[in-house]
Write a protein that binds this DNA or RNA. Structure first.
Lengths: 138, 138
DNA sequence: AGTTAGTTGAGACATTGTATCATTTAGGGT
DNA sequence: ACCCTAAATGATACAATGTCTCAACTAACT
């Protein structure tokens, strides 16, 4: 399992809380706010604490498994493996996933140039969705 | 001025608070947290209120002038015109700006395909900076 | 199974963001 | 230049969000 490897490699333990938080993000299939993660994760672990969710989300970000994303109404988290290419409406926050991306091949180039170990990327286009566009017309 | 046009076009007023907040972001040259914006903006407008900063940042995002960016320690805001291509370390949050980008030409394609009016984009590569990379070695 | 350091949950606390409302102000009309 | 009005502001109270501490628990090594 991805989660287990990533945690172990970085010297962290694989705990129930961490498994259940990762699972919540995986099954949701969309970015979740910390509060939503807590609610979802409690279905598989009723006693889960709020502080632990925050701690775990931060940890999963550091470990590279999860990516934080801003939006109207606060930050949301999603698995780093899904939906890294999207259109997002700056007005209403609507999102639309893109199939794929023209930036894939740059990883080695960047590693060479900056000594950065690139593991993933996020490509977002900002603008207005069809609805907001129409509404903003006049 | 960019600010004035963008606000007027969307039917909002151009006020002292808005000017001073935008100026704070412009002169900072790096993403600022709301608290930092407040502090910076108060230099040019001592009586500025906290609530107004939040209101203004959200407004400038909706209007497309400012972009929110998550990171260790909360969301930060920067002008949409600067630094939209970067390397960011998932561990310590260090950033490195990139000169330019391979995704520029996609705007029309996306407009055609999805009816989206693309105004800008964000391309971020995630991974480990040289320092964190070394430290994570063992 | 025993040991121990990493992790957790509860709750207090601090910080950050929002709603309300009286007062001020931008900016169009006259 | 001066009104007029709706939009915007600042203060305050409030709600939500995130952090810290610490005793209890547990993953994982032996």
């Amino acid at each position: 399992m991805q989660l287990e490897r990533q945690l172990r490699k970085a010297g962290f333990r694989v705990t129930r809380a961490r498994r259940v938080v990762a699972a919540a993000l995986a099954t949701a299939g969309r970015p979740l706010s910390p509060a939503e993660v807590l609610a979802a994760a409690r279905r598989g672990h009723p006693g889960l604490g709020r502080a632990t969710v925050y701690r775990t989300l931060n940890l999963l970000v550091r470990v590279g498994l999860v990516v934080p994303r801003p939006g109207p109404g606060g930050v949301r988290y999603s698995l780093a493996s899904e939906g890294m290419h999207r259109l997002v409406c700056r007005n209403c926050g609507a999102e639309r996933l893109l199939a794929d991306c023209p930036a894939g091949g740059l990883a080695e180039e960047l590693a060479r140039r900056y000594g950065f170990q690139v593991e993933g990327h996020l490509l977002e286009f900002y603008g207005l969705c069809p609805d907001c566009r129409r509404r903003a017309k006049p």
